[in-house]
C-alpha cells in the first residue's frame, strides 16, 4: 500500500475519532491499519435494537480508488447482508462503480446505520429475506429479533 493511502487512512481515522457517529466504536491498530474493527449498536428505532454487532472494514491496496470492503462478523438477519459466514455487503457506495475516491469511511458507516433502520429492498443480496420484509413484515421482525437474541447479545 502506498504512503499516500496510509496517510489518507490515518487522516480518516482521526476524523472518525473526532466525530464518531453515535452507537459506534472503532478499534484501530496502527500496526495493521488496513483492517478496522467496528462495534455497532443496533439503532433504537430498528428491529436490531439491543444488539451489538461486530463489523470488519478492510481497505484494499488501491484505496481510496477502490471502496473499502465491509463484513458483518456477527450474524444478522437483513436483506442487504449475505446470510453466510462472510456477512458481506455490496450496495450503494460499497460498489466499485458507485464509489468515488473522495468518499470517506464515515459515510460508509452512516450508510450501514441507515440500512439497519430501513433496509434497501431493491438492491438486496438476500432476495428471500427482502421478499419476506416486503410481504410478511411480522415474520421478518420475528426472525430479525430472534437472531439478535441468539447472536448479537
Amino acid at each position: 500500500m502506498s504512503a499516500g493511502a496510509k496517510k489518507r487512512i490515518m487522516r480518516e481515522y482521526g476524523e472518525c475519532l473526532a466525530d464518531t457517529p453515535p452507537g459506534m466504536k472503532i478499534n484501530f491498530d496502527e500496526q495493521n491499519m488496513t483492517k478496522w474493527e467496528v462495534l455497532l449498536d443496533g439503532p433504537d428505532q430498528s428491529y436490531y435494537a439491543g444488539g451489538h454487532f461486530k463489523l470488519e472494514i478492510n481497505f484494499p491496496n488501491e484505496y481510496p480508488f477502490k471502496p473499502p470492503v465491509v463484513a458483518f462478523k456477527t450474524k444478522i438477519y437483513h436483506p442487504n447482508v449475505s446470510n453466510d459466514d462472510k456477512g458481506s455487503m455490496c450496495l450503494g457506495l460499497l460498489r466499485p462503480d458507485e464509489w468515488k475516491p473522495p468518499n470517506k469511511v464515515v459515510a460508509v458507516l452512516r450508510l450501514i446505520q441507515t440500512l439497519l433502520i430501513e433496509p434497501n429492498i431493491d438492491d438486496a443480496i438476500e432476495p428471500s429475506i427482502a421478499n419476506e420484509y416486503k410481504e410478511n413484515r411480522k415474520e421478518f421482525e420475528k426472525s430479525a429479533k430472534d437472531w439478535v437474541k441468539r447472536y448479537a447479545k
Partner: peptide, 28 residues
C-alpha cells in the same frame, strides 16, 4: 484533484475495471 490522484483514478478504471466510454469525474 491533484494530477497524481486523477491519474491513479483513471488507471484503476481503465486497467482494473476495463472501463472507457463511461468513466465519470472522480468528484463525489
Amino acid at each position: 484533484f491533484c494530477v497524481d490522484c486523477y491519474r491513479q483514478y483513471l488507471y484503476t478504471k481503465i486497467k482494473d475495471e476495463g472501463e472507457a466510454a463511461r468513466i465519470r469525474c472522480p468528484g463525489d
